[in-house]
């Protein structure tokens, strides 16, 4: 199999590398836009002065440093994390609809945050981060644990089923708590939609080590995912330990999705859509799908955030709403345009 895959990849390798470079340039452009476009009109030269000669008394300068810079950095990192976690999850579970929501990660994070608010009266975002992270980890661990019961271990179908069941169960807990406590609902509403606004550098710093570790780990799973994509039997016959591969990929995904959810709330569609776009460009090789997803996702996420900032002046639309609004039709178009590469 390796021999038949290689030449195809070789043929496209130069093009794909070039494409990756192009994406990196687009990411830089979107980041630039994110620094310059917002609910408040700040001229370009003012953005430049803010970055080079910061004046703490200037409102515009403070908006650039305190609002747009953290927002841009969080958007880039959370985007990369969502794209990568989606790609890794789809590869590890061989499920084209795998997303951070399918393994109960969003629901787990939401349950912990809701419990934190109702039982302990926590309202600071900085503590939501840890609750969300812990919830994501616990949910993933439980889902994986239940799916592992039985001789075949955590197969894609079992993971997807357990994940869906867990999501349903946890979501009902969240709904129950929210129905009992409208105050909690008010506080959670903002977090639950998913937003890049109102997150400062402290939030970024809290999740940064996890995000970076997750990105490195996820990129390192490319070879295993390629093996898994050939089917368990082939992977095993190639000398791969399927269980360990899945565990490592799962760990990478939970670290990424957990910290992304912690930082920005559960943002849907990015993790689901982006890997399919990447796959449509690169073909089935995870050594390309992963870096492409990693660069495509921040473009979608930050792009959506920028749109959200300007469509409803003087307010803003939260990024989770925009990604769902532009992500869904895009996804449908993608599915209709061509048969999705099978996993």
């Amino acid at each position: 199999m390796e021999a038949s895959v290689r030449p195809t990849v070789m043929r496209y390798q130069a093009t794909l590398a070039l494409g990756l470079l192009g994406l990196a340039v687009i990411v830089a452009m979107v980041a630039f836009l994110s620094m310059t476009v917002g609910a408040r009109a700040i001229p370009l030269d003012m953005v430049w002065t803010a970055l080079t000669a910061f004046d703490p008394d200037s409102t515009d300068h403070r908006i650039i440093w305190d609002l747009r810079l953290p927002r841009t950095l969080i958007g880039l990192l959370v985007g990369a994390a969502l794209g990568l976690s989606g790609a890794v999850l789809q590869g590890a579970t061989r499920n084209p609809l795998a997303d951070t929501s399918i393994l109960g990660i969003h629901a787990g994070a939401a349950v912990f945050v809701v419990m934190g608010i109702t039982l302990f009266g926590i309202t600071q975002l900085s503590i939501y981060v840890w609750l969300a992270f812990a919830g994501a980890g616990v949910a993933m661990f439980v889902v994986y644990g239940i799916a592992s019961i039985g001789r075949e271990g955590a197969t894609p179908v079992k993971l997807a089923l357990v994940g869906a069941a867990m999501t349903a169960a946890l979501t009902s807990v969240v709904s129950a708590v929210l129905l009992m406590s409208p105050t909690t609902f008010d506080q959670l509403r903002f977090w639950q939609v998913g937003s890049l606004a109102g997150r400062d550098m402290a939030v970024l710093m809290q999740v940064l080590p996890f995000l970076l570790a997750g990105i490195v780990l996820a990129l390192a799973t490319a070879r295993m995912l390629d093996g898994l994509s050939l089917g368990e039997d082939v992977a095993r016959s190639l000398g791969q330990n399927v269980k360990i591969s899945r565990a490592i990929a799962g760990l990478a995904a939970v670290i990424l999705a957990g910290s992304a959810t912690a930082a920005a709330g559960p943002i849907a569609f990015v993790g689901l859509t982006v890997p399919h776009v990447a796959r449509a460009v690169t073909g089935p090789n995870y050594r390309w799908i992963l870096p492409y997803s990693m660069l495509l996702a921040p473009i979608l996420l930050l792009g959506a955030d920028i749109i959200g900032r300007v469509v409803a002046p003087p307010g803003e639309v939260q990024v989770g709403i925009v990604t769902a609004a532009i992500g869904a039709p895009f996804f449908i178009a993608l599915v209709r345009r061509r048969k999705l590469a099978t996993l």
Partner: peptide, 18 residues
């Protein structure tokens, strides 16, 4: 500009000094 229920105008924090 108050919202449709007529209670609040929503300002992005970038516009807080409006």
């Amino acid at each position: 500009v108050a919202d449709d229920r007529g209670y609040f105008e929503t300002l992005s924090w970038e516009q807080a000094d409006k």
